[in-house]
Design a protein around this nucleic acid. Structure first.
Lengths: 231, 231
DNA sequence: CCAAAAGTGTTGGTCTTACACCCATGC
DNA sequence: GCATGGGTGTAAGACCAACACTTTTGG
């Protein structure tokens, strides 16, 4: 991209120079009653060996959202995951190697659908319990705190939880995901009352048979983000 | 900034190319019971003659936040205004002249402190009623909708309104600002009850003498952002 | 028959909303 | 004395949190 393009831009003068643009994605999933979060191990540079959220530069032809979606797809194999922009971090010193402005995203993927894939730029990739992350490279500790806060708060007034569940589930399983993420226990009767009152779930005609009394299976009527009030 | 720097970056490969980074700032104020919003008239290019929010490229040495603060200072003369990041817009086609990723901000300034200053890059600058903006250049219609939504919602659970008021004010004036921004009338008794119960205001030892019964003056005890519950 | 998870209503307290009259001043 | 904005309390309804027992199945 030529500098001349910006010098002729009607709103901008080019004297300032400019940073690079990257995305970083905090990818959550729930597996066996634990909220997990995907980290990659940085290979070289001042943070080599440290852990960070996966991310990469935004390409010339793609939108910033697309770059985030691409990163989720490349690392987890999941297409069309739930993605939400968190915040843009732009301090010059946040990455000592280069001036990088980073747009952070929150992503939710169902655990069963994930097939982790390492990129050559990383030394390792794996899930960590979201509330016990190691110290992270760059300013990613801050990104992680923000993501967790946003996830917890958004759980309460949206239906995004459907992104973490299989298409059929029992109310007990649904409640378990809420409890896992919010990190506190909820009253079963109140939970069922409230979530059923929202009218977002439909009861299926089958039950899940386990080791004990079978439970009705439910599904979300619509699998798309909606603003509601929960918990 | 040399490409070689990024090719040697531990996390990124340089094949992608990269966009420019800019900020756009939605600057609100309240004047005579109207929520006003600052627009500039674009000079050349495909949007020449159109109106947009003031903004500019992020400099190599400054953070993105600083670029926004600088823009507010340059246009209004107000230093240290309330600033909050809104969202980052990053579609390649959003600005036809150049690939620009734009970080949008919401700013609040007290009307009395403002001295508007035109930049050579703009044809004009002036206040518009926030709920009657003209069609804007770029994707700024979207930015404006988002800013207004955020302002209204944040009014309800923070104390940011202090950024729009002089240091001393009556409860009537405070309520008027709320009503102006929320665009609906509030019950006076309930409003006073609630806002006083928050304990954020102190009653001063003086009254404002107007054309009728004098009203007690109040001030915010702390002029810094806090999370609360209002309205 | 025992263990384990599923299922189900009511009550008290808190919070929110709606609403009407008197007061102090300037003109 | 009248017009104008300032100042104040209560009652009804909505909402939320707390709480215990019975049912159904597998082993």
């Amino acid at each position: 991209m030529a500098v001349g393009q910006v010098e002729s831009h009607p709103r901008f003068s080019a004297h300032q120079g400019h940073p690079w643009v990257a995305v970083d994605v905090v990818i959550y999933t729930v597996d066996r009653r634990v909220l997990q979060c995907l980290l990659v191990q940085v290979k070289g540079g001042p943070f080599g060996g440290g852990w960070a959220f996966p991310g990469g530069l935004v390409g010339a032809e793609e939108s910033v959202d697309q770059a985030a979606e691409r990163e989720v797809g490349e690392r987890t194999g999941v297409k069309g995951a739930y993605l939400e922009q968190l915040y843009t971090f732009g301090k010059p010193e946040r990455d000592p190697a280069t001036r990088v402005v980073s747009v952070s995203y929150l992503a939710l993927v169902p655990y069963r659908a994930v097939r982790l894939k390492l990129a050559s730029k990383y030394a390792d990739i794996r899930w960590f319990a979201a509330d016990r992350l190691p110290h992270l490279a760059y300013d990613h500790d801050q990104v992680g705190r923000l993501a967790l806060k946003r996830l917890r708060s958004k759980l309460q007034y949206t239906n995004i939880v459907y992104n973490l569940l299989p298409s059929e589930f029992t109310l007990g399983e649904l409640q378990e995901v809420y409890e896992t993420i919010l990190h506190r226990s909820l009253d079963r009767r109140n939970f069922r009352k409230k979530i059923l009152a929202l009218g977002l779930l439909k009861q299926l005609r089958k039950k899940r048979r386990g080791t004990h009394r079978p439970a009705w299976l439910y599904a979300f009527m619509k699998r798309r983000p909606m603003i509601i009030e929960m918990v």
